[in-house]
Design a protein around this nucleic acid. Structure first.
Lengths: 265, 265
DNA sequence: GGATGGGCTTTCACTCAGTGAAATCGTGGG
DNA sequence: CCCACGATTTCACTGAGTGAAAGCCCATCC
């Protein structure tokens, strides 16, 4: 009497966790069962186990939320808190110098995930959230991550319809392809009003010990008081500093560094 | 041929996640199986599913680490990133005014978990880590969290042997009991060189909408340039600001507020 | 009062997902 | 070459997991 033979217990547990999103971080058992496509009794049993362990917590309102224990374990992710800890001092420097928004992101599949954000109180408001996802083809960090992603990822992104946010968003695959080539040539990316009409971002790659691009850092500034070309070296230097903290051999990091900057030894 | 009848699949999956600690964030499959006390073939299967979903990631060295997907889900924990987002602006204010370390922690069972930390470059070095755990009976945040914890938690802590870090650490249950009463009376806690001989911390409670203490905030300063009594109102005010952000009715927050401060309306 | 409904838990008989010992498959030393 | 170590696959067995249905709890409404 197994309704969906082939469905593993583990996949059900993970589907339950998957049901939580930034938009709905608190769910009743029924909602959980519906979203995870699991019969209610089964959901009840799995959820009880997750609560006992601390992966979920049940609030006074009877709704379930992600538990602190899961946050703790998640904080051990090298690409999450680990990266953040290494990058934060440099991000703060960048903020102190510019007083603009500083963002740090990595690629997960065909999207990017924001790892950290320093939002100046007087800087342009940005709609990103730490832990939130976004498409790769519009933001500065996204363009960098896409430009240095495996060919397969690029092709999949170019093949899918490219969502539009403003009239300046690149939605033509050919134009995007050329933009990515430009990013690789210069070593930084500029996204001019592609997400909102008031902001512009300049991003640079962050490389891991093997020289591959593992993350991207960007400055988001008001488009009318911005000079992307002037900001680029600043962001690139920050990217290189964090790369070094990650253990990048200097040679590898320098490989794609084209703009004339004094060697950061 | 079930070796440990009564062991659920879910418990095995969670035991695998439990195997990762700040001290060992990268494990081979064999290590995982050993720590989780699961036969290797079984561990292999469960781990494969976790990797497919993104809960774990396998590095170039063959070791497994916590994956970004788990970090993402964990970031939805209200007591984790949720609390941090609400508290951060106030914590930054506190840092700007004092240029000392600011810490934010919640209680999980009989320990505390650090949610966020602002560590000034020129402030005393602290050995805490975001996502890290610590005992309740020594730090400022710990004393606050313990003082307002359910009686059961207090009794369990008092019954167990109290670990000592310095010659000033409170290890006598009677003295601890009196210290907790003092915290409740004054509405703040001072931990003077109880963890390291160079630092002192002053902590205050953060209350949730129902008036219960859900977190604690503290300043950690060098013990020789510190005046706890002068710092207390500052930290308490910060605690109340964050409480308000959490939706605390003003009355409830004021209930245990004894030190004369102008009403923060 | 009691009828209705929404949300959750328990019962119960069935069965396939999960299991682990053993064999197999790398891979890297010596 | 063989050995050691780690990881994966095979295979026959079985109890953990299952879900329909019934039961339970607690509002809310008439």
């Amino acid at each position: 009497m197994h309704a969906q033979p082939g469905r593993s217990v583990t996949s059900k547990v993970l589907a339950l966790l998957d049901s939580f999103t930034p938009a709905s971080p608190a769910l009743t058992l029924s909602e959980l069962a519906r979203r995870a496509e699991i019969p209610l009794p089964t959901a009840s049993r799995r959820v009880a186990e997750l609560v006992a362990w601390g992966a979920l917590e049940r609030g006074a309102d009877g709704r379930y939320r992600i538990g602190l224990r899961l946050w703790e374990v998640g904080s051990l992710a090298p690409r999450g808190l680990g990266l953040r800890e290494l990058a934060l001092p440099t991000m703060e420097d960048l903020y102190e110098v510019t007083h603009e928004n500083v963002q740090l992101a990595v690629r997960q599949d065909l999207e990017l995930v924001f790892i950290e954000r320093i939002a100046g109180r007087h800087a342009v408001p940005v709609l990103t959230r730490v832990g939130g996802r976004f498409a790769l083809h519009a933001t500065g960090v996204g363009l960098v991550l896409l430009a240095y992603a495996p060919t397969e990822v690029q092709e999949q992104t170019l093949a899918a319809p490219l969502e539009r946010w403003t009239e300046l968003t690149i939605t033509d695959p050919g134009r995007l392809r050329r933009a990515l080539a430009e990013v690789r040539r210069t070593g930084y990316a500029v996204s001019d009003r592609q997400v909102t009409m008031d902001a512009l971002s300049v991003a640079a790659p962050i490389r891991g010990p093997d020289g591959s691009v593992v993350a991207a850092i960007s400055l988001v500034v008001a488009h009318d008081r911005a000079d992307p070309v002037a900001l680029a070296p600043l962001v690139q230097a920050a990217g290189r500093t964090i790369s070094r903290a990650l253990g990048t051999p200097v040679r590898a990091a320098a490989t794609s560094h084209v703009t004339p900057l004094p060697p950061v030894t």
